[in-house]
Design a protein around this nucleic acid. Structure first.
Lengths: 236, 236
DNA sequence: ACCTGAACACCGTTCAAGT
DNA sequence: ACCTGAACACCGTTCAAGT
């Protein structure tokens, strides 16, 4: 029995590494996996080179062999998370507009779950397989809806941008007290704008800030899809 | 003559302050003014509590009497900069769509000049007079164009959001080598996507990344205005 | 009330030196 | 080639103590 156990234990390559299990080699994948882990447990704010170095039991300088900088690290985390977007509606039956909205809502839901990530997604667009699959899915649905190619090509960008920006905004408010206060200040400023100098703001009143985030998001998707579908590229 | 000069020199209130001119008292305005100064000369990245404290010849803790945190500071800088947006087209003659596009282009131009600010503008919407004036101007033009109030109320948000996000993205690429490389990676990934799995991306090819930033921006504004104008709120 | 020194708890990134 | 220690040059924010 002793013999069997002994034969199952991998012999360390170097005598000097006998004490603990050999430290697994660093790699881009291992760093990103650690980053996702830290983000889920401590938030993206803690996904720093130094924190990750600690997590991987090394020094911060070592990470620069595999990751160019902090922004690239965050982009890689986003690409990983994008795997959670439900692209099922692309191939499902039903009205194309409804299915497109469903995909975009799924995308925003993923970002909502990770507020700070949405913020970084606005600047650092990922270029990985999950992002490409999302773009392909949106394009397929616009194509099915008869949207001309040139318009779809530019429209997909706007749709994802609007979805990302909305998620970044809403979710920042969700768990940041200062952001919440800032939003209240805007609502108040809009409500108190003098009709003399701000007739349109006064005329619209509460309407400017009406609706739930979900209602607004649905309308925004509809409006951008309609605009994309109806606006020829040569118009300008 | 000696007497005259002497009488023109303001007597210091306290003997102990005689040596140098009295340090002017801190205030929100003085802090924001210093922040704008530092941003123009060193970039928003240097607009930190500590840098500003140095600039104002005090310690970082002192600033917290007037500014809640760094995000609020950046929002105040943005509000200040928004004073540069040209709202002339609002009251000028001409086609309303053209004038609306002109206002939005002016807005993005201001943000383009200060890349990092655009980024922060996506999260921290200012609530100051310059921002209100911009919202009022956009609403006035949508009203002139016969866009129903409810749609204009929600549309103004989308228009400013899309303008801000585009500025943040384009301008980040403008002066950040890493961001430039990231964009190239995306262009490459789109160009190399296999037609088998990504038929729509392959079909559109270069079209996905075609056009100058200005051309794309013009089309985006047109499309969002068209969508806002054509999409009733009860649709969803 | 306003201001501050000092401290706490962190950052990103580079580079020469090691294996 | 890969990895690292150590250093450089910074951060935001709080709090007890002073004026």
């Amino acid at each position: 029995m002793f013999v069997i156990v002994s034969s199952m234990t991998p012999r360390p390559t170097h005598e000097s590494r006998r004490e603990r299990p050999a430290k697994p080699a660093l790699s881009h994948d291992r760093i990103v996996a650690a980053a996702v882990r830290v983000m889920r447990t401590e938030g993206l704010r803690r996904v720093t080179m130094r924190r990750l170095a600690t997590e991987l039991d090394t020094g911060p300088a070592s990470l620069y062999v595999y990751v160019a900088n902090t922004a690239a690290l965050h982009a890689a985390v986003l690409e990983e998370l994008l795997g959670e977007v439900d692209l099922g509606p692309v191939a499902a039956p039903g009205e194309w507009r409804e299915r497109l909205a469903a995909v975009l809502v799924s995308y925003t839901r993923v970002l909502f779950a990770h507020p700070e990530l949405a913020h970084s997604a606005l600047v650092a667009r990922p270029a990985g397989p999950h992002y490409l699959a999302l773009v392909e899915g949106v394009l397929a649905l616009l194509h099915e809806g008869g949207v001309p190619g040139g318009q779809a090509a530019w429209g997909v960008d706007v749709l994802l941008q609007v979805a990302t920006a909305t998620a970044a905004e809403q979710s920042a408010r969700q768990d940041d007290d200062a952001a919440k206060e800032e939003h209240h200040a805007l609502v108040r400023a809009l409500a108190e704008a003098p009709p003399g100098t701000h007739p349109r703001i006064a005329a619209l009143g509460d309407d400017l800030t009406s609706g739930t985030p979900h209602q607004r998001l649905r309308w925004i998707f509809q409006a951008v899809v309609n605009g994309t579908s109806a606006t020829p590229r040569e118009a300008t």
